[in-house]
Amino acid sequence: MQVVIAPAEELARTAADAVEELLARRPDAVLGLATGSSPLGLYDELVRRHERGLSFARVRAFSLDEYVGLPAGHPQSYRSVLTREVVARLDLPADALHVPDGTADDLPAAAAAYEAAIADAGGVDLQVLGIGTDGHLAFNEPGSSLASRTRVKTLTAQTRHDNARFFDDDPDAVPRHVLTQGIGTILAARHLVLLATGRAKAEAVHQMVEGAVSALWPATALQLHPHVSVLVDEAAAARLQLAGYYREAWAGRPDGWGL
């Protein structure tokens, strides 16, 4: 696990460098996209690079999750969010964005179909991630199986409270159920890039990087992956016991090495 501690703007550029380097090697790469506040700086940076010539025309993209029961076109559905923040601002074709079907009559079948679509695409090359204050990854809440695949999950009161800011600060307006990639699904991606900023994420980041692997903190499963990049600002890094080493390792990396 590689930990980078830097200001948020620098983190966005570092993550964008990884995406750009991937697309230089493989223009038809498969990207995994996250929603929430954490990846917005990265998406803004990718837009700037697209304006300078970086193309996403052959890319395929998969969302981590989707709310269950929001009507098609709802502004806070993750399809709408990713269309607004990513697709509409890049040359990524609209039909290249794949999102779990939270309106399906048969949700388990929709989950299985989503797993199959990821497999048919050859798997995710680079997965963008955030982390919840309780250590949830995608919508894999504490107690989730570390081998789980895409499925229906019930959101905790804490997660609904955290996401209320997207629903006029009304936790009751946040859907109670989601379709989410499982921990096992996420771990199958070839490169995981997690971004976290702010003091509220500090304990979760500490547990994820330095704690014991446990379903109590689902993001600790990332310790089991061979290629994980954790990008955090000073506030989110406040609880890291080995912060000095992480800074030294990043500053002393071999010339030309990125994430």
Rank of each mutant, 00 (worst) to 15 (best):
L155S: 01
R247V: 06
L192V: 08
A111F: 02
S55P: 07
D134S: 15
A173G: 08
E210C: 02
L70Q: 02
L107C: 10
D106Q: 13
L31R: 11
V81L: 12
A34F: 07
T154F: 02
H227R: 15
L179G: 05
S229R: 15
D134F: 11
L46M: 11
L31C: 07
R199W: 10
A12M: 10
A238T: 14
P100G: 04
A238W: 08
D44T: 13
R49I: 01
A117G: 01
G135M: 08
A110Q: 00
Y78W: 00
L107N: 10
D120L: 13
L70T: 06
V178S: 09
A202L: 04
Q181F: 06
G73D: 00
A215F: 01
A109E: 08
A204Q: 07
A157H: 14
A15K: 14
D106L: 05
L242I: 11
A243W: 08
R199P: 14
R60C: 00
G184W: 03
Y114S: 06
V30T: 11
A238Y: 11
A96P: 13
R58T: 01
V68T: 09
Y67T: 05
S63I: 03
R190T: 07
S145V: 09
L22D: 02
P226E: 04
A200G: 14
H191V: 10
V124S: 03
K153L: 03
D169R: 15
V232W: 01
L97G: 08
